[in-house]
């Protein structure tokens, strides 16, 4: 706790819903980034958290841009900063709709051009700002306003798409672990080149649970293995400690499912399929990290 600065870059108070994890994440992102930062925000909840013109609750410069263009705008800002010799942190703070569905081609392009920026996707698993419509990031079985009987497809595996770009640094985290977010953002900003972070953001009105359970649910998502926390440096996988613990021994997935109204009346067959996908994801991660450990051991001998 002592290492995290007490300075707040969000003024009192954003117009986030009570119990919103997005403003919690942004607090720690900005603490790690400091005042020498430019935020690029596409259409998402964060574009309304700022409040009404001519006042804003954000203490750093913000560009509000069109939905699909956030990474492209960041590329432009990065080029301008390089030309002027400025050492500014360029951070895109986008929701899951603006990353997984609409912004993915701009993001892929910026990663390919090796733009020097950090892209943060805070994932509440639906289009929260417009009233919880289904996005590519919505998990299987979750009810949204456009999937009233539960989504019939699996969540898009964004992290593997991003890691296929072989970028210098990518990480996943969860709103319930602010120290982890702080450490990962600090590390990401110390590296030159494209960086990506994917952060799970529990959403009280969207996931339909009462507002005080935000931190609890985020922790449950990690403990049940639904959400895996790790980082990759030049493709090299390093699992974070909560996920290592979850691989060894995990909480039953029903604890996470039953805590949310969006999974109400879930069919047993769908639950089994969710469980299988979670197990498979953890198996892949475990296998990969074990292979890397073996490789390291071989190199040493």
């Amino acid at each position: 706790m002592s290492s995290i600065p007490t300075t707040e870059y969000l003024k009192k108070c954003t117009s986030a819903c009570p119990g919103c994890s997005s403003s919690l994440i942004l607090r720690y992102v900005l603490k790690a980034a400091g005042p020498n930062t430019v935020l690029v925000v596409p259409a998402c909840c964060t574009s309304i958290l700022q409040g009404a013109y001519p006042n804003t609750s954000f203490g750093v410069p913000v560009y509000n841009v069109a939905f699909g263009s956030s990474a492209a705008v960041a590329s432009g800002i990065a080029a301008a900063c390089e030309f002027l010799g400025k050492d500014t942190n360029i951070i895109v703070y986008a929701g899951d709709g603006g990353t997984v569905d609409i912004g993915i081609q701009a993001l892929s392009g910026a990663l390919e051009r090796e733009t020097n920026f950090l892209y943060i996707c805070y994932d509440n698993e639906a289009y929260g700002n417009t009233g919880m419509q289904r996005s590519g990031s919505t998990p299987l079985g979750a009810k949204t306003t456009t999937t009233p009987t539960g989504k019939t497809h699996l969540k898009k595996d964004l992290d593997r798409i991003i890691s296929a770009h072989n970028i210098p640094y990518m990480a996943t985290s969860c709103a319930s672990y602010p120290k982890d977010i702080y450490a990962k953002v600090t590390k990401a900003l110390s590296i030159k080149g494209p960086k990506f972070m994917h952060i799970l953001a529990p959403c009280p009105p969207g996931w339909r649970y009462s507002s005080e359970k935000t931190i609890e649910l985020g922790k449950l998502a990690v403990k049940t293995g639904v959400w895996a926390m790790y980082e990759r440096e030049y493709g090299k996988l390093k699992l974070s400690s909560p996920t290592i613990a979850a691989i060894r021994k995990r909480t039953p997935i029903e604890d996470y499912i039953n805590a949310q109204e969006r999974y109400k009346n879930l069919e047993p067959a769908v639950l089994t399929r969710i469980q299988q996908s979670v197990e498979y994801n953890l198996l892949l991660l475990e296998r990969e990290s074990r292979e890397e450990e073996n490789n390291e051991a071989e190199e040493r001998t």
């Binding site: 954003t14 009570p18 409040g51 013109y53 001519p54 609750s57």
Partner: peptide, 16 residues
């Protein structure tokens, strides 16, 4: 069209 950072930009949210 620039905004300035200020406390209470979103109103006094305590009355929520």
């Amino acid at each position: 069209a620039m905004s300035t950072p200020r406390d209470g930009a979103c109103g006094k949210t305590g009355n929520w």
